[in-house]
Design a protein around this nucleic acid. Structure first.
Length: 443
DNA sequence: AGCACA
């Protein structure tokens, strides 16, 4: 007899198994809900949820084969489909005969969570924001962050598994509230499992790790280097994928750095399409979009580590953004789309740019630019005619910048970062802390 | 919406 095994895997032709494969499950689906679903048909002896790349599949195993058959045949002829919380669940016999429960660390409730931050801008999420988000559920002892193939991840340590579980249940699959992120970051979604760790080892307070139980822990050099997200270099970590969009952060910003200043500096290397500035950890950052990658590479190589102003002021740190095209919603003093013809009077006068041949790093070999090679923008050179927006910036008195990020670093547990809208007592109210995350499920 | 493994 001819084999029928070449037929597609229609559920009716599959060989029965007491293990059923479920798909299209909602994110929040729990083992309990799977048991509820199967209970009418028999005894569920084992389950496995959060299976698959999207973790929206599961298996349930019945005690007896005919119980599984009962469930399949019921829903095969039922007019209303199997549902979990109103979401239709698709069932079929599994191609395995039993659930192998490799109870991994991710399945065992513990006090440390493994958090994967997903999204284009995931790695721009600061450890402070993570701290804030998770502090809503209880005292966060320690956080470490790292990059793996899975992306940008963090380990978040709570006192106990119960607290960790409440945070996991509330945050898994949700996005970090936009108001906690710089406005130009895309959505950042949290995927959370348990970690096998019970106590993280944090040797330094740094951009990648914090121990909130020990505010006197030494501070890593890398944490002193400004407000960077560019955890490049000092940590030996390189997350550089070349892009036509540069992320510039400005260290030691004693003078105001305006959109026009940035445009002036970066346009030495080619036409600038868009600039978006935003505050990050009390410092200033900007995304600068060139038409092509090569121009951006040139600008980055020439400008990285150099100061806009003499005396070590406004030192630029530049990395590649993961953006390729910035979305500028409005032209103002923080963001501008130079590709729109009707931009209100931007000082992109070519004549001015053309007047600074000496200042164009492209003109000289970067090789010999070892020591602060980026020509400081002199007051004279930068202030031709009347230029709106420039005002008193370069020549004015150094402003005391609210570089409070470091205070933040040493802040005792439970304290609130200045300007953060999250209530510090939210720890007692996990329910209210959930609201900002909204429905956030199913896409 | 189509089969798991830290």
């Amino acid at each position: 007899m001819a084999s029928v095994s070449t037929q597609p895997q229609f559920r009716y032709t599959q060989t029965p198994s007491k293990v059923l494969h479920l798909r299209n499950l909602p994110w929040e689906c729990t083992e309990e809900e799977l048991i509820e679903l199967g209970k009418p048909f028999g005894k569920v002896v084992n389950t496995k949820c959060n299976v698959g790349a999207n973790r929206n599949q599961a298996f349930i195993e019945f005690q007896d084969l005919n119980q599984a058959i009962a469930m399949i045949s019921y829903y095969a002829s039922s007019s209303d489909p199997a549902q979990v919380r109103g979401k239709t669940v698709y069932l079929q016999y599994s191609n395995r005969q039993e659930i192998v429960n490799n109870k991994t660390a991710a399945d065992v409730a513990g006090n440390v969570l493994l958090v994967t931050i997903e999204g284009e801008d995931a790695r721009l999420v600061s450890i402070d924001v993570l701290h804030l988000v998770f502090s809503a559920f209880g005292f966060v002892h320690k956080i470490t962050t790292f990059e793996k193939t899975a992306g940008f991840q963090a380990l978040v340590q709570f006192s106990d598994a119960e607290t960790a579980t409440s945070a996991k249940d509330a945050l898994d699959g949700r996005s970090i509230p936009r108001y906690l992120l710089p406005e130009h970051l895309g959505p950042c979604t949290l995927k959370i499992t348990y970690s096998g760790h019970s106590d993280l080892s944090v040797k330094f307070q740094s951009h990648r790790s914090r121990d909130y139980t020990n505010p006197y822990l030494p501070v890593a050099q890398s944490a002193m280097e400004g407000s960077g997200q560019y955890m490049v270099g000092l940590d030996g970590k390189r997350l550089e994928a070349e892009s036509n969009v540069l992320l510039a952060s400005i260290e030691n910003m004693q003078y105001a750095v305006t959109l026009d200043v940035l445009h002036m500096v970066f346009s030495s290397f080619g036409p600038i399409q868009k600039i978006a500035m935003f505050d990050k950890n009390g410092g200033l950052q900007a995304l600068i979009q060139f038409p092509d990658v090569q121009t951006a590479v040139t600008a980055k190589d020439a400008l990285e580590g150099h100061c806009i102003y003499d005396g070590g002021f406004c030192k630029l740190h530049i990395s590649y953004s993961r953006h390729t095209d910035l979305s500028i919603k409005v032209n103002n003093d923080r963001s501008r789309d130079y590709t729109i013809p009707l931009t209100p009077v931007v000082n992109v006068q070519p004549s001015i740019l053309g007047q600074q041949p000496v200042h164009n790093p492209m003109m000289g070999p970067p090789a010999q630019q070892q020591y602060n090679p980026y020509p400081p923008i002199s007051e004279q050179g930068l202030m031709p005619q009347s230029q709106p927006g420039w005002g008193a910036a370069p020549s004015g008195p150094p402003q005391s910048m609210p570089m409070q990020m470091h205070n933040n670093v040493y802040m005792p547990p439970g304290t609130m970062a200045p300007g953060m809208p999250f209530p510090s007592h939210a720890a007692q109210q996990p329910a209210s802390a959930m609201s900002p995350y909204g429905p956030g499920r199913n896409q």
